[in-house]
Each structure stands twice: as C-alpha cells, then as structure tokens.
Design a protein around this nucleic acid. Sequence first.
DNA 1: CTTCCGGAGTTCCTTGAAGAGACTCCGAGA
DNA 2: TCTCGGAGTCTCTTCAAGGAACTCCGGAAG
Lengths: 155, 155
Amino acid sequence: MQRTNFGEMSCSIARTLDVIGEPWSPLILRDVWVGVTRFDQLLADLGISRKVLTERLNHLVDQGVLERRPYDRRPRYEYHLTPKGIELVDLLMVMVAWGDKWRAGEAGPPVLYRHHACGEVSSVDLRCSRCGEPMHANDVDLLPGPGASVEPRPV
Amino acid sequence: MQRTNFGEMSCSIARTLDVIGEPWSPLILRDVWVGVTRFDQLLADLGISRKVLTERLNHLVDQGVLERRPYDRRPRYEYHLTPKGIELVDLLMVMVAWGDKWRAGEAGPPVLYRHHACGEVSSVDLRCSRCGEPMHANDVDLLPGPGASVEPRPV
DNA sequence: CTTCCGGAGTTCCTTGAAGAGACTCCGAGA
DNA sequence: TCTCGGAGTCTCTTCAAGGAACTCCGGAAG
C-alpha cells in the first residue's frame, strides 16, 4: 500500500524499504537468489498474482537490484541479482536468522545454511566492520551524519 | 495490503515478514529503538495516520517485539523493545548499512553509528557465527532443514 | 501456410488497507 | 465545573492486492 514515499525520507532504513519494502519483494529476491528466476516459476512458487509480480519485478529492475536476462531467441527472460541485489541478500540472511530463532517452532528451521569457509551448518552474526567485535542494538551510539536533515528525528 | 498470510509459509523470511513486513513497522521499531516511544511522538515523527499506527503497535505488541509500559497514573503508555524486538534491530542495522552504501547519495549517511567496543564510527558486517569468517550470499550452500515442508521450494 | 502451444505479460473487476481528519474518552489541574 | 492533552476510535475516500480472463508472439506440428 504505502502511498507514503519512503524514498524521500532522510533515513537509510526508509530508503531501503523504498526498494524492497513492498509486500512480496523480499520473497521474490529470495527465490531469485536460490534459482527460481522465471516469471511463471515465481508465480507458481509464491502464489502471487501476475499483476503484482509484474509490478514488483519492474520495480526491482528499475532499482537496479535485479536484471532481466534473455535466455531464448524468443522474448523470454530470467531475472538475476545484480551486485546491488546480492548485497541485499545480507538482509534476507538476517531475516532467516531471526525467523529461525523466534518463529521456527517445534519443527526447527525449514532450511539450513552451510558456510563454505568452515563447512559447518551455521547462521550469520553481526560484527563491527572495523574491529570485528559483536555489534548489536545496544553496542552503538547514534551521531548525526553528514546527510542528516535539519529536521529533527532522522536516522 | 498483503492479504496473503506469510506467517503460514514454510520460510523463515516469510515468517519474519509476518511480524515486521507491513508498511511502517520497521520505522516504528527504529523510532522506539532511538527513544521515540509515545503514541503522539511517533505520529508526529513518522507522519503516519493514527489508525495505522494503532494497528501496527497492537500487532507488534501481540507479536511480542514491543511492550506497552505505563508512565503515568493516567492511562498513558510508552512502547519499549522486548528482547525479541531488540534482536530485530539487527535487521534495521543491516538495512542502514545497505541504504548508506547504495542510497545515501552526495550528502552521505544521515546517521552514524559509533561502536562502543572500539569507539569508531563503523557499520555492521555479516560473519559466520561458528568460524567468524565473512558470510554472505555466495558463501553458503542451502540444505533442507528439519522443518522443511514436503512441498518444493521452501527456504 | 495454418494451427496450436507455452511463456510472459496486460486488463478488468472486487475487496480491503492506507491516508486524512473529526470525534471520543478520561484523569488531572485550575 | 471547565478545560487540557495524550491516546486512541470512527468515517470516508482513494488506491493497491487478489484473482481470473485475455493478449501477444515466436517456434513447432501438421
């Protein structure tokens, strides 16, 4: 719905939501990431309506997180993650970690992630990109940045 | 909008979206995180409608990520993050990192984060919780987990 | 050459959520 | 008793999501 335009806000969270905040968009990204890349595959896998899928794909392509790639001499396309889109998968992995922890229930997580570097089934953890120590909600102070608006309450 | 119930899907991303996937929810969480905790403060800061703010707050309280805390003998409440909600801030921090990198524009990021442990202005990075090495989209294999549905295409 | 097929949309209608603003409720203080 | 201010509730309009039918188009089949 979201008639309010988050992209104009002076807030990196709102700007990120402007790209993938609409319903279905994260799930589309997930599918493309794991190899569900064609229109009718996405349709069948997600149970989304054709109209909404078209809109979301166009928006994600416009935003530069997906690219449309022909796979036939007929006009047939696959969708693939761009570098910008691949970095959004970080977001999906954190969602997975949270959902696994708080919403998996009795059955346990539906999917496991094996880390190439160590070969273990694992999950992501947030670290400071400077010192490498854990970095979570209570480990930071907020300071106004160069792009802060004059308005109160950015982020 | 999202009449489709993401919470029923066999997918931790969809289940997480069931909690904070609606428009405004991540921004409400951000505000509560940084200290904007009262109804009319949130209203003014976000520019959200009263009706939607009421709905979102109720949902977030029902889901156990926010708690309502009286701050007066009159029926006045503040909203605070629960432990479950504090862990959702990880998600916000990753959104910030992505938004800062790809959408901040000329002006630079609107807010900076100083890490307590090292004192530096920094951002989050994703690491494997087992070996500590970087863990991103291309560093993992997916395996079916114990909670996988019989259906194809979970995650 | 004509017909059929299948992937990828496009169009149309109905339902219901978001936005905006007015109204209500209630305890405290003047 | 009257007023005030925080925290909602109600109502109305607009526009997005869901669903289904329809279109377009190039290749294959006959």
